[in-house]
């Protein structure tokens, strides 16, 4: 089944972000199309994570506009971005360490759960019905990511690679339109990377989720991305399909340096 790349879903125009005197992002424009895998690459400190934080409302850029599904998006808080269907994982794992894998993934569905705390307190009835309905969805994600055997384990006890997978599961449980992945393969060995690549491609293929990916492994990026945007010192220096980016002299300069 061939994926159909759709229309532009997120359009970032002339984004500039400053922290005091530090310019994290300068006049960056690029767009993300529906169902595609869009990678952001760049050397350390290029502003990649800041870019994701702008997309899901953690940071508010001083200049520039964000169009989401064709409409200008006002300044918003992270939970509002979540309500619009933007989920993400973090560079440093941001799981809830004291909770089990199952509970962590269940938190991903919180926006779809409508019972209030009084119904939770009484539990039997509406709250239990809702809990079970969402548990079924969560179990689908657990099966999809092959983590059935650890569902009752507290995440703090899991090895790094599995924690990354649980974090992806939590993001997927929200059934997002757009999934922002911040270095999902950092610190993994080759096999774990292969697994993670497979999951990312499967998610994209199976659920049609649009994926924005930050990754340092060029092999992975060039293999799985539809389009790549390259940042360096907060500026965009390249944008296009992997082959174009690979041959872009600016990009080669940023990564390898040039002889003078």
């Amino acid at each position: 089944m061939a994926r159909q790349i759709g229309d532009v879903i997120v359009d970032l125009q002339n984004i500039s972000l400053r922290f005091g005197g530090v310019k994290a992002l300068t006049d960056i424009s690029f767009n993300v199309k529906e169902h595609e895998i869009r990678s952001i690459i760049g050397p350390n400190g290029a502003g990649k994570s800041s870019m994701l934080n702008v997309i899901n409302g953690v940071y508010h850029p001083q200049e520039g506009q964000i169009f989401f599904k064709g409409a200008l998006r006002p300044k918003m808080e992270p939970h509002e971005a979540a309500e619009q269907g933007i989920a993400r994982t973090f560079q440093n794992i941001a799981l809830f360490k004291g909770m089990t894998v199952l509970d962590n993934i269940m938190t991903g569905r919180n926006l779809k759960m409508k019972c209030n705390f009084l119904q939770h307190a009484l539990y039997w009835g509406a709250a239990q019905k809702e809990e079970i309905a969402h548990r079924i969805k969560v179990e689908e994600v657990i099966e999809f990511l092959e983590i059935q055997d650890i569902r009752k384990t507290p995440v703090g006890r899991l090895p790094y690679g599995l924690q990354k997978r649980v974090e992806l599961a939590r993001a997927l449980a929200a059934e997002p339109h757009i999934l922002l992945l911040d270095e999902p393969m950092a610190g993994m060995n080759v096999e774990e990377k292969q697994d993670m690549c497979r999951f990312v491609l499967d998610v994209n293929d199976h659920y049609g989720t649009t994926i924005v990916l930050i990754e340092h492994d060029m092999g992975v990026v060039m293999d799985i991305s539809d389009r790549v945007v390259v940042l360096d010192y907060g500026k965009k220096i390249g944008d296009g399909v992997p082959e174009d980016v690979k041959n872009n002299p600016e990009v080669i300069k940023a990564y390898l340096g040039t002889s003078h």
Partner: peptide, 20 residues
């Protein structure tokens, strides 16, 4: 879900906010 919200805020408030 109420308890999970509390524990999420306890364990990592930024992530709790990002997931809604």
């Amino acid at each position: 879900s109420t308890g999970r919200a509390w524990m999420a805020v306890r364990d990592m408030d930024v992530a709790a906010q990002v997931i809604g």
